[in-house]
Amino acid sequence: MNPLFETASGFWNPVFLFVALSLALIIAIAIRSRGNKTAKKTGGQGLAFFSGNVEPEQNIAAGNLYWGFFESMKPYYDVVKKMHNGIVNDYVFWFVLLLIVLIVTFVFGGMAWV
């Protein structure tokens, strides 16, 4: 039962990672245990500081997590959304398209590469 795992160009040993993770955990616990035991859990010290302004309304959900990514990829998503329109006729259309591409590859593939 040797955990060493050899791949084509190197090796990987999960035990090293396990040791490293355990060390990191021990250090984290050590730092945490040095903290002030009397610190209050309530009272708002964990909240964001808005320089005295009125706190904005909380309306950020898990769906907004990657907003920037969606905004920059908008042209791509417009196309893909049209593809996933949920109409079964179009599902068949995409399948037929795949079929045509495969037929072309299988029939003419040999010639193009020789």
């Binding site: 959304k81 996933h84 329109n85 949920g86 109409i87 079964v88 006729n89």
Partner: peptide, 9 residues
């Protein structure tokens, strides 16, 4: 009608 679909995107 297949266009009245609920599952999409």
């Amino acid at each position: 009608s297949t266009e009245k679909r609920r599952l999409k995107e």
